[in-house]
């Protein structure tokens, strides 16, 4: 789209878009292409020579049980983070929307975790869930009789990073659900109330369907968040451990490439991640935005 009345200039528009283009070419497209090329090469450990090996790196990663495990972990993790934070965000937003008094105060009290870096959220929850010092860990141990130990047990570590990652995301979901709830026409709710629908029934029959665009949008955003931005949580809290049980795909790319210096494998993994995010973005623009739309 463009304006009807435009300016005539020969070089000015190019000059204006130039900084953006130079940066995207240098730091986005060039590395992306390099990564793609690198994924077809196999280098010796000292990086002196490399040879073209077709899909060797891809075959290698997809037959590596550790990589397949990492895929499984990532999907479990992102689904858990997305569902926990969306459910909690929706619940609080519904409550806050019902309580008409003090909405500004409630918003202030719920909004700030958005500003906390994922890594810091990880530190706060590590303290709460620490096997020897954490108070929440103590509560879990004494109430449920579970031998809670995220430092040694993979499942517990997974629960810990899920909570740390989801906690921060609650505010984000809250803000969007609040906006969505306030856009639901009051007249619809009132009409349903006159027809004798209970508050719960009204929520499921009217509010929830009207929130579905927000709901799907947030699902996509939360999954992208847990795929990529949770790197900080993993790096500060578990470093992918214990025993690779929290080694999500992004962390594995970093480990194999930057720490392990296995360039070919790391690049192939990057390309897999790139394709994943392309698929998610295309799906988001093609289906989610079109199909799930209701007019209020």
């Amino acid at each position: 789209m463009i304006k009807r009345s435009t300016f005539k200039a020969s070089y000015l528009p190019y000059l204006l878009i130039l900084p953006q283009v130079i940066i995207t070419l240098t730091f986005f497209y060039w590395p992306a292409v390099q990564g793609l090329l690198q994924s077809f090469l196999l280098s010796d450990p000292f990086g002196r020579s490399s040879k073209f090996v077709w899909f060797y790196n891809y075959i290698e990663i997809f037959t590596d049980p550790l990589y397949l495990k990492s895929i499984l972990i990532t999907f479990t993790f992102s689904l858990a983070v997305a569902s926990v934070s969306i459910a909690f965000g929706l619940f609080i937003a519904t409550m806050a929307n019902r309580a008409l008094k003090a909405t500004a105060l409630v918003r202030t009290l719920l909004i700030w975790p958005y500003a906390v870096a994922p890594a810091i959220s990880g530190i706060l929850w590590l303290f709460l869930l620490h096997p020897s010092y954490g108070i929440v860990a103590l509560a879990i141990k004494s109430w449920f009789g579970v031998d809670w130990n995220p430092v040694l047990k993979g499942g517990d570590a997974m629960v810990m990073i899920t909570i740390a990652a989801a906690w921060k995301q609650i505010s984000y979901n809250f803000v969007f659900f609040m906006a969505g709830l306030q856009a639901v026409p009051k007249s619809l709710i009132e009409a349903a109330a006159i027809d004798g629908a209970s508050p719960l029934k009204r929520f499921w029959a009217i509010t929830f369907p009207l929130l579905s665009p927000t709901f799907f949008f947030l699902s996509v955003m939360n999954i992208i968040y847990s795929f990529f931005e949770t790197f900080g949580v993993i790096h500060t809290v578990t470093q992918g451990g214990p025993g690779g049980s929290t080694n999500i795909l992004v962390y594995k790319v970093y480990q194999d490439g930057f720490v392990g210096l296995n360039l070919g494998s790391s690049s192939a993994q990057s390309v897999v991640l790139m394709s994943l995010i392309v698929i998610i973005t295309v799906l988001q623009f093609k289906y989610v935005e079109k199909k799930v739309q209701y007019t209020g």
């Binding site: 986005f28 497209y29 590395p31 992306a32 990564g35 992004v250 930057f258 990057s270």
Partner: peptide, 16 residues
């Protein structure tokens, strides 16, 4: 560039 966050191009961006 929406589809190319730093996380998917770690090594080559470092080289740049």
């Amino acid at each position: 560039t929406l589809m190319l966050p730093v996380e998917v191009r770690i090594m080559p961006t470092y080289e740049v």
